[in-house]
Design a protein around this nucleic acid. Structure first.
Length: 270
DNA sequence: ATGGTTGAATATCAA
């Protein structure tokens, strides 16, 4: 079996408008697996051919122009799951959103996650966000209880800045989502369930971000947020040898507002 | 200036 040794997560903000940059990131970083968020399209709209030409398969979950998650892999994509057990619905009428897709790639169970934004602290979307995270924690804890040796990656756009140093201004976010204590507690609960942050130790802050708003020259002014993370089960975390944030990818015309986050793994014992 | 940018059902919503 070919094991992945380099996995990345990236909110691409439309895979159709950014497919050339997606292929560029796959090739530039020699990625084995790319976990994608915000594809913003249905399955039938997916630009799969450029990925196939580059040597990658894709599993996608997209229902409409919002959300959309995918797993791009050159080490196999098996046992694809769309949504996780207990994942809450949203909207009127309430329906599942395309915010989670899981698959086994080269012996690693990977999940591409797009956590609900929350919008405003008093918005129903904020309660939905906390509920979504609580159910993710419960379900993921169950996976680990079933198999403590499982190699699992939970990666994506968490829409949470876990520490004060993860935002460019604590004061600016004081009355906004992404830094509130309930959101941070929800993130910590996933960590406490056994899924360690694989990236921070190799990309120490302050001033290290993965997202910069398109408006107000945020990137140029270094006004960003660290909200994209890869978490891993104990057996997976033991394989990590490094991590990096591809800040260069945020530059230039046609960039996503998020940067790719990469994790390097030691080759697995076979 | 209650603004600024981007992308998607091109008309507004979402981020």
């Amino acid at each position: 079996m070919v094991h992945p040794v380099r996995i990345a997560t990236w909110n691409v903000n439309s895979i159709r408008s950014r497919i050339d940059r997606v292929v560029g990131v796959l090739e530039r970083h020699d990625l084995d697996v790319l976990l994608v968020q915000e594809t913003k399209c249905r399955d039938d709209q997916l630009p799969a051919l450029p990925l196939a030409d580059a040597g990658y398969d894709i599993a996608h979950y997209g229902l409409n122009q919002w959300n959309g998650v995918a797993i791009v892999s050159r080490v196999g994509i098996d046992d694809v799951e769309r949504g996780f057990a207990g994942m809450p619905d949203w909207g009127d009428p309430a329906a599942a959103e395309a915010r989670a897709i899981g698959a086994t790639c080269g012996g690693v169970r990977v999940w591409s996650l797009y956590v609900p934004n929350g919008r405003e602290l008093d918005h129903p979307h904020y309660a939905y966000k906390l509920d979504w995270l609580a159910h993710l924690r419960d379900t993921a804890a169950g996976w680990l209880a079933d198999d403590p040796q499982a190699q699992i990656v939970l990666a994506g756009d968490w829409n949470i800045a876990p520490l004060d140093e993860d935002v460019w201004s604590v004061a600016y976010f004081a009355d906004k989502t992404h830094t509130s204590e309930p959101e941070r507690a929800a993130f910590r609960a996933v960590v406490d369930a056994g899924f360690a942050d694989l990236t921070r130790a190799y990309t120490p802050g302050p001033g290290v971000y993965t997202y910069w708003d398109y408006t107000q020259l945020s990137f140029q002014k270094r006004r960003g947020m660290r909200i994209d993370f890869a978490l891993g089960s104990p057996a997976l975390a033991a394989r990590v040898t490094g991590a990096q944030i591809d800040r260069e990818e945020r530059k230039g015309k046609g960039a996503s507002d998020h940067a790719p986050v990469l994790v390097d793994l030691a080759d697995a014992a076979s």
